[in-house]
Design a binder for these strands. Structure first.
Length: 668
DNA sequence: TGGGATGGGGTTTTT
DNA sequence: CCCCATCCCA
């Protein structure tokens, strides 16, 4: 097959795809066929004789990485076993798995997520005799992360937390665990301290591509930079207007850094939009022009079809949800669409409940991506904690989680007793419990001692079994039976049978995930370690994503997707732009605007926005004001509520005008 | 000493 | 509304 780029791509796309040597910066506007360009670019590289193994493509989500591989496979018709497409974090994890021993990590180290981190911080605070209630653990976790990723330094106003930071990191080492930031940071350390490894990776990946470049952090850029600085075959693709992850360290100054570090780079702009109607594009362009800090670019489309941008003002979140459900049915029939042509986007997760309820009662099938990750659910984390301890006895966070779940009568004081032993013997908590529970005359009640040693024995037993050739799915099932986990769930919710059953179902789903993993021939390795790694970075997507369902998600999760008709709910000041975001830093208004931009550019044809007049928040009902961004849309493109939608038409039409005045008065 | 009952508070976005 | 922490009882 000879690949003719110009027949499948427009001239800018083809230029971008064909420029495979040297540094390239590709600014790709929303809906400009970026993914198409990237996949053809890699297919073209392969066709030019570049081996799969020399290409490294870094993406933002696991899903994007998987999709990229799949698309290239489709184009080329060849298996892509040697091609590396990965997220930054997964890439870092792979490196640490291979060479972690250089840095003192033992095999099977645990990867801690944010909630594990917060748990550890709490413990560290107690240890340093600081009252955990006196600080906001959430922002503390953020500080720790910012320091680790080099975004912040300890200064006079947070110096008090420096010892805590040290404590936290030494605990991680002790527990043979890493946090998410380590997955980027430790590989950098590794490359700094072991030049031969850096050399190896530089030669291994001679062509590097970074997707969603605007969302990379300074450290992630550093990682790419040191790998690519010699061969300089680095292609970065991004859109500064869609940078929406600054709170996680994304820094679109990386675009400037790139231009500085690679002065010989070529810049290509993809500005033709293939996704949306002219109406949507015009509105999006007008909106984003209000951002001062951005690269100049103007989306255009050959499409002059008129789409719909409509705005309505439901009374509260229930009416909003009902409106959306009704509208979906209406638009679906009128345009003979399917449910999966619809996306409902939300700024925050807590807006989900009302919408889900309405969809449920209207019998509209839907999937949620976002909300709490499947793997973050308590019942799932519990089981993962068992597996983690089995894989890594030093993982104290996980051990503490399971030690009294299900109840074994091991409470505060027993635990303190074990802690003291660990302290004395300078050993891990696990070894301490192990020793104490088998020892005579410990001062602990016999029953508790028995329970403790039963747990230790169980861990040992399953360690042996799970690392043998035996079927892991049935072993996990057996373990769940051994600890009567399902009974525990029922006992936990004595007055809510339904909730218990739902959790039990989740546990079953988890078991089926193990089974699916075990059967998957493409998996990277087949040990328990590999399984744990495979889920440690799993994103928020539900395991069962099916077609024929309305897609419900946060705006953040919607990046890269498109729908015939998009609903954007909660278009209210305080929600988008989000109040907290602005309180943190008024300059965040630009990022909030980009979020709004991302949301509206998801729509191919129609965009329905709702702004409630009142909204229930926690316990109280608050009066709301329409989002200030609505003022920035060209008024002639936005349909206000029509005759048949609201009883009191005039007030509805005037409402926005009124609110607008209120807003303008409020802002200035 | 651990477990159940009671009261207070809360996540904006996610690898 | 639900989860977590604390308090008091068995």
């Amino acid at each position: 097959m000879a690949l003719q780029l110009t027949t499948v791509l427009n001239s800018e796309q083809a230029d971008a795809a064909a420029t495979i040597e040297g540094p390239v910066l590709i600014i790709a506007g929303a809906g400009s066929g970026k993914t198409r360009m990237i996949t053809y670019r890699i297919a073209y590289m392969l066709e030019q004789g570049i081996p799969q193994s020399e290409i490294l493509a870094l993406t933002f989500t696991n899903k994007a990485a998987a999709e990229m591989t799949e698309r290239i496979r489709m184009i080329t018709g060849k298996p892509m076993a040697k091609l590396t497409t990965s997220t930054f974090h997964a890439f870092g994890l792979a490196i640490l798995k291979r060479h972690g021993s250089y840095l003192g990590y033992a095999k099977g180290f645990s990867v801690y997520d944010t909630s594990d981190k917060i748990g550890m911080l709490k413990a560290s605070l107690v240890e340093l005799q600081i009252d955990p209630k006196s600080v906001d653990l959430y922002s503390l976790a953020e500080l720790i992360s910012a320091v680790k990723t080099g975004r912040k330094k300890f200064s006079t106003d947070n110096m008090e937390y420096k010892p805590l930071y040290a404590e936290y990191n030494s605990h991680l080492k002790l527990y043979n665990a890493v946090d998410f930031d380590d997955l980027i940071m430790q590989p950098l350390v590794l490359f700094r301290d072991f030049p031969e490894l850096l050399e190896y990776y530089r030669n291994r990946y001679r062509y590097i591509l970074v997707d969603e470049f605007q969302d990379t952090s300074l450290q992630q850029y550093q990682l790419v930079y040191i790998l690519a600085s010699i061969h300089r075959n680095l292609c970065v693709v991004g859109d500064d207007d869609q940078s929406i992850y600054s709170w996680r360290g994304a820094d679109f100054r990386n675009i400037t850094n790139f231009e500085k570090d690679f002065p010989e780079s070529k810049e290509i702009k993809l500005e033709q939009n293939y996704r949306s109607t002219g109406t949507i594009i015009q509105a999006a362009n007008t909106l984003i022009k209000n951002n001062v800090k951005r690269k100049k670019k103007l989306l255009w489309t050959g499409d002059d079809k008129r789409g719909i941008i409509a705005l309505s003002y439901p009374e509260d979140e229930t009416q909003e949800a009902d409106f959306i459900a009704d509208k979906i049915k209406e638009v679906m029939i009128k345009n003979s669409l399917r449910y999966d042509n619809f996306g409902i986007l939300l700024r925050t997760n807590n807006l989900l409940t009302a919408i889900e309820q309405a969809l449920l009662s209207s019998n509209i099938p839907y999937t949620v991506s976002g909300g709490q990750s499947f793997f973050q659910r308590k019942e799932i984390k519990d089981i993962i904690a068992y597996l983690r301890v089995i894989a890594n006895f030093d993982d104290e966070v996980s051990l503490l989680r399971i030690i009294n779940t299900p109840k074994r009568g091991i409470g505060k004081s027993t635990l303190q007793f074990y802690r003291n032993i660990a302290e004395q013997k300078k050993c891990s908590l696990f070894s301490a419990i192990s020793a104490a529970s088998h020892a005579e005359d410990t001062g602990i009640r016999e029953s508790i001692k028995r329970n403790s040693s039963e747990l230790i024995d169980l861990i040992h037993l399953y360690k042996e079994q799970l690392f043998s050739k035996k079927n892991k799915t049935s072993l996990v099932k057996a373990m769940l039976t051994d600890i009567s986990y399902k009974n525990h769930l029922i006992a936990e919710h004595p007055d809510n049978e339904q909730l218990a059953q739902w959790k039990i179902k989740n546990v079953d789903v988890f078991v089926s995930i193990i089974e699916r993993w075990e059967r998957n021939p493409d998996k990277k390795g087949d040990s328990l370690y590999d399984f744990l790694n495979s889920i440690s970075l799993a994103g928020k997507t539900e395991p069962d994503q099916e077609a024929g369902k309305v897609n419900l998600m946060t705006v953040h999760a919607s990046k890269g997707l498109e729908f015939h008709t998009v609903f954007l709910a909660g278009v209210e000041d305080h929600i988008i732009p989000h109040k907290r975001s602005l309180e943190e830093d008024p300059e965040n208004i630009e990022e909030e605007r980009r979020l709004f931009y991302v949301a509206i550019t998801r729509a191919r044809n129609n965009l329905y926005m709702t702004s409630c007049r009142t909204r229930k928040y926690m316990r109280e009902v608050i009066d709301t004001v329409p989002s200030r961004f609505l003022i920035e849309l060209p008024p002639e493109l936005v349909e206000q509520p029509g005759e048949d939608t609201v009883a009191d038409t005039e007030s509805a039409v005037n409402y926005f005008e009124l609110m607008r005045q209120k807003l303008i008065a409020g802002i200035s």
